[in-house]
Simulated scan of single mutants.
Amino acid sequence: MDSDDAGASGLSILVVETDPAARIALLDHLRRRGFSVLESGHGGASIRAAYDRPFDYVVTDIDWSGVSDGSALARWVTANRPQTRVILTSKTLTHWFPADSTMASLPILRKPFRQEDLDRFLSPVAVMEMPGS
């Protein structure tokens, strides 16, 4: 898990992405926009991070598996940190959530996605390009 606390926008984001190359590109995009970023490549550390402190956003891949998964993280965050906006990502989009569940109302992006697609779900203040980037 890696942290960058110099978020110019003042907004924090937890990024959970299992693919290292996709994670690097995503982190670079978010840091250029001034987010304070905490990253993880798997579930256990990300759930602990969400438990330890609130985030403005959580962007999580839901295709990872194990004892905890992206869906478990998203469910925990929506139940315990209702002020946090959760954005799901998936390669397959074959996930089915009951219509009356919290998960069904969360935005989901199919990977690979354009950075502009992610920006639609982030605060307008946060998606402004930082000077010098």
Rank of each mutant, 00 (worst) to 15 (best):
A74Y: 01
L38F: 08
P54Y: 05
P54Q: 12
D69Q: 03
P54L: 09
H95N: 08
P54N: 12
R81S: 13
N80P: 11
L38K: 12
R48D: 15
T92E: 00
A104P: 09
R53V: 10
E39T: 12
A74M: 00
F55D: 02
L106D: 01
S71T: 15
V15A: 11
A99K: 15
P54F: 05
A72F: 06
R85V: 08
Y57P: 08
A22R: 07
T18M: 10
R85S: 09
P82Q: 05
V16H: 03
S36H: 08
I108C: 13
P82S: 06
T84M: 01
G43C: 09
T60A: 02
S90C: 05
G66P: 10
T60R: 00
A21D: 13
L93N: 11
D61Q: 05
D100S: 15
F97T: 02
S101I: 07
V15S: 04
V86L: 02
A79E: 06
V86M: 03
T78E: 04
L38D: 11
R48H: 10
P20S: 07
V58F: 04
S65D: 14
D63S: 11
V37Y: 00
I24V: 15
V86N: 02
G66K: 07
R53M: 14
A79N: 06
V15I: 14
E39W: 01
H95V: 06
D28E: 10
R23E: 10
T78A: 08
V59L: 15
G41Q: 09
I24F: 12
A99I: 09
G70W: 01
V67L: 14
H29E: 13
S40V: 04
A72P: 00
V86K: 00
A21I: 11
F97L: 05
R33K: 15
W76G: 00
G34V: 08
R75C: 06
E17D: 07
P107N: 02
A74K: 02
Y57V: 06
R53C: 08
A99W: 05
W76C: 04
M103Y: 04
S65H: 13
H29A: 09
R33Y: 09
T84I: 01
I47W: 03
R85Y: 00
R32W: 10
S65I: 12
A74R: 01
E39R: 06
R32M: 11
T89E: 11
I108Y: 04
G70H: 02
R75H: 06
W76T: 02
F35Q: 07
V15G: 04
L27Q: 13
S36G: 10
Q83E: 15
